[in-house]
Amino acid sequence: MAASAGPEIERLIGLLSKLPGLGPRSARRAALALLKRREQLLLPLSDALSEAAARVKTCQVCGSLDTQDPCAICADPARDGTLICVVEEVGALWAMERAGAFRGRYHVLGGLLSALDGVGPDALRIGPLVSRAAEEGVREVILALPATVDGQTTAHYLADRLAGAGVSVTMLARGVPVGGELDWLDDGTIAQAMRARRPA
């Protein structure tokens, strides 16, 4: 790239370009937008970032992110403690919550098994899941994982590990992905998949 923007701005661009969905070009655009709108964007964003950094933590129970630990969902006595829904990432938990299709508790795995990407069972929150499932009062573990090879392999693996925990293990209904794309984390689809769950 020609004409460097100075080390502070380059650092900002470099960090922005690490965000998902942003390449070097859009990071440049984003940096410029921030710098041009100092009062409306840059300073509030900077405050929001420090606040999030200081206050947001990982829930020791389910692995979700919140300003309290246990998180609001784990702490909510109105949620159904007999059901645990296993999701890959916090983003999937948020999508489930948006759809309003589930009233139980969650467990965030933190990824999917993938030998090629070097993600093994030890890198995921599997041990804590097995302990939670074995706790008294838990009736069903619902595996809400993607319909990809990694997602389904992980689901199969978890079903195996949960076999002795005395809970029923179910999976969301999945469609047949054409070309491997299935965006089931979509409005009504989630609710439907949740109703049509089947034994894993």
Partner: peptide, 21 residues
């Protein structure tokens, strides 16, 4: 899946439950 399995078989860990899956 075949590539994943081959990676486990050649580089480990030879986790039987993972291979089963």
């Amino acid at each position: 899946s075949m590539r994943e399995r081959m990676r486990l078989l050649t580089d480990g860990p030879a986790d039987p439950a993972w291979l089963d899956a």
